[in-house]
Computed example of a mutant assay.
Amino acid sequence: MNPDQPGLVTRPVFYVSDGTGITAETIGHSLLTQFTGFRFQTDRISFVDDEEKARDAADRIRRAGVALGARPIVVNSCVDPALSGVLAESGALMLDVFAPFIEPLERELGTPRQSRVGQAHGLVDFETYHRRINAMNFALTHDDGIALEYEEADVILVAVSRAGKTPTCVYLALHYGIRAANYPLTDQDLETDRLPPRLRAYRRKLFGLTIDPDRLHQIRQERRPNSRYAQLDTCKREVASAEAMFQVERIPTLSTTNKSIEEISSKVLSTLGLQREMF
């Protein structure tokens, strides 16, 4: 799904939920990545927890379909079938996140579900919730080398600038409660193939990210057009030096070039043996 590729068919996609919509968006994104030849214009509609909001959402979805001349796709995680019915009046293709699982669970448990809005959020363990928030605060204060106190870190992602460190740290914090820091390799760090001194004490927590230099060039060009930082030669040199360091120091490494944040996070967790606590 390359939005910059010409000639792609545009389809409007909505992630709709009576909560935050993160579940619908995560599942929907995983589904859409299986299809090429389309440009998916995505939007999230959160907290659709009564009929009025559902009708407003349906109208918004309908108008998007008319504007783009294509039937919208809705990935829906509203638990109330009545709200889902209102959303369906938009004429969109409805993909219900819970539908494939409800009937088998009802048969197995011998009881029908209780479709009450917001009930799913009642399963929240507040101790776990606060751990997730603390992990998020940790990720933000230890982003891009802002803070270098890594004693409490569960993992430290190491990479050149714009290789995907920050979004992966945020994802690990929000979804797994993992205290993830990240360290950007500077020109000075890349002068040798040895770890920067400040990282050596935390070797067991390190995970290296690398990226195709051409892709890195594209990303940096968007951030700082025509700068030395964005030059392809600079990208090639930095990536080669970083990969050499990871190899010499035997740091586990993954290329982020064609990987989603979910895939990167899963690999980090499994490689370092970190316990998952999906929220």
Rank of each mutant, 00 (worst) to 15 (best):
L274H: 04
N137C: 14
A147P: 10
T253N: 13
E149N: 10
D143V: 01
R113A: 13
G118I: 13
R204E: 15
Y150V: 00
M245H: 02
A240I: 14
M136H: 12
K205D: 03
L272A: 04
G37F: 08
Q5G: 00
T192D: 00
L109E: 01
S161V: 06
S46A: 12
H130R: 13
E108V: 08
A88F: 04
S255Q: 14
E103R: 14
T42N: 11
D59K: 00
A54K: 04
V239Q: 03
G91P: 04
L195F: 05
F207S: 02
V16S: 04
S115V: 13
L216H: 03
K236Y: 08
A58L: 03
D143Y: 08
F98C: 11
T128D: 14
T253Y: 11
D80T: 03
E25Y: 09
L274T: 12
F207R: 06
I251P: 06
R224V: 10
R162G: 02
A82T: 15
E262A: 10
L216T: 03
T128Y: 14
D56E: 12
Y202Q: 09
V158T: 05
M136C: 10
G118H: 11
I251S: 12
R198S: 13
R220N: 02
T20G: 11
R179G: 11
D59C: 04
K205Y: 02
T186Y: 09
G208K: 02
I251V: 14
S265W: 13
R198Y: 07
V13I: 04
S265A: 15
D4V: 02
V13T: 00
R237K: 15
G7A: 02
V16Q: 01
R71H: 07
P213G: 02
A153N: 06
E103K: 13
D125W: 06
Q5Y: 05
G177L: 11
Y176Q: 10
D125L: 12
I264A: 05
I73R: 09
S115E: 13
S90E: 04
I27K: 07
S255M: 15
I22R: 11
E191M: 06
V170G: 01
T141G: 05
S17M: 03
D193G: 09
P184A: 10
A67K: 10
P12W: 08
N226I: 12
D56Q: 13
D189P: 07
Q231A: 15
K205T: 08
Q188I: 01
S77E: 05
L195K: 08
D193Y: 00
P81D: 07
V97H: 05
G91L: 03
R63K: 12
I261R: 06
H29F: 15
T253G: 10
E103N: 14
Q41W: 04
R63H: 01
G110K: 13
G110H: 08
A139W: 02
Q247T: 04
